[in-house]
Design a protein around this nucleic acid. Structure first.
Lengths: 187, 187
DNA sequence: GTCTATACGAAGATAGAC
DNA sequence: GTCTATCTTCGTATAGAC
């Protein structure tokens, strides 16, 4: 089983149960590799594994965003919400965002926390740049981008707790409307 | 040490480290009570303690909201963001929302998860009712209320990861502006 | 380089002495 | 009713046989 599959498995477990409930033992078992091998690939232990899991998850979202934002910020935001909707609904409300899970449980894994911060920053910046390219003033674009990322992440948490997709859909509806009005005003 | 202080201590540890990293042992030590006593007061074990911690935290916010919303939805939203700002900034980005922590780590604590869902629902409903009373149509009011709660919670997570209060302030600025425009349009 | 076996600590929970 | 002592399980991590 390849190294990246171990990381992907770890990311999946983290987004479902959280970081602390994800043991390296279980990650190894899930990947079909012995415990010792896992430590051979990840000498940094749990910290390293969590960090790479966050980075991998962040990159997947970044790539989708990068592609969709070429069709404009509205399309990018739609895709961003679509991604989270798929994760939450596709796992029967079992999974959320691994970046959030790591950020909430911080503590003994500083590098993983830094990777979380970087993920949020990367997504926000992508959205903000796209908004700027469509005429939104820089400060406002940054604010709106943060709002989109924060609201989506918060809505994912609410959806899982309430076992309903409605929070995500509600938030997506409000934000797409808001962004459309902001962009059309500047066009 | 009173029963409620044990719960308050647990809530504080949960919002800092997360649910799984909060052991009953440490909660007991922090409260100055022996481990056995804690199980005497909370025979349901960790599930019960987590559930009560979430409910207590939820009620504190509910009470503030209830009071501030009498001065209108804008004032309520301002207070809501103010609360979270105080928690995040006042702990040097160490603490977040215990309701989110429990929702993200789900797993073996179904009652605690249900309490989280109830907390989100209660806050949203309070905000939605206030918006309705100020002329916002019911469906829209519910959407906006969900947006406020979700965005605040997501921003809290981002603030902790990035060790910056900016996400919360950005989101608050956007949402207060949005709500003002919605309300003034209906007045 | 891969994996087995194990060291060591801490978790949830309980039994039972006071 | 209060607390000490302990049971059992599982966590991270490593030593060292193949």
């Amino acid at each position: 089983m390849s190294r990246e599959q171990i990381v992907a498995g770890a990311a999946d477990m983290i987004r479902r149960r959280g970081l602390n409930a994800t043991s390296i033992r279980e990650v190894a078992k899930h990947a079909g590799t012995p415990l010792g091998s896992t430590y051979h690939y990840f000498p940094g232990g749990k910290n390293q594994l969590a960090t790479e899991a966050v980075r991998l998850s962040a990159e997947i979202v970044t790539r989708v965003l990068d592609k969709k934002l070429r069709q404009g910020p509205a399309e990018g935001v739609r895709a961003f919400f679509g991604l989270w909707r798929e994760v939450v609904a596709g796992t029967d409300f079992q999974a959320g965002c691994p970046v959030v899970a790591v950020a909430v449980e911080e503590a003994a894994h500083p590098e993983a926390l830094a990777a979380s911060a970087e993920a949020f920053r990367a997504w926000s910046r992508q959205l903000a740049e796209s908004l700027e390219q469509h005429g939104v003033e820089a400060r406002r674009a940054a604010q709106l981008a943060t709002l989109v990322v924060g609201a989506a992440e918060g809505a994912v948490v609410m959806c899982r707790a309430q076992r309903s997709i409605q929070p995500l859909d509600d938030v997506a509806a409000e934000l797409t409307a808001l962004l459309e009005s902001v962009i059309s005003a500047r066009t």
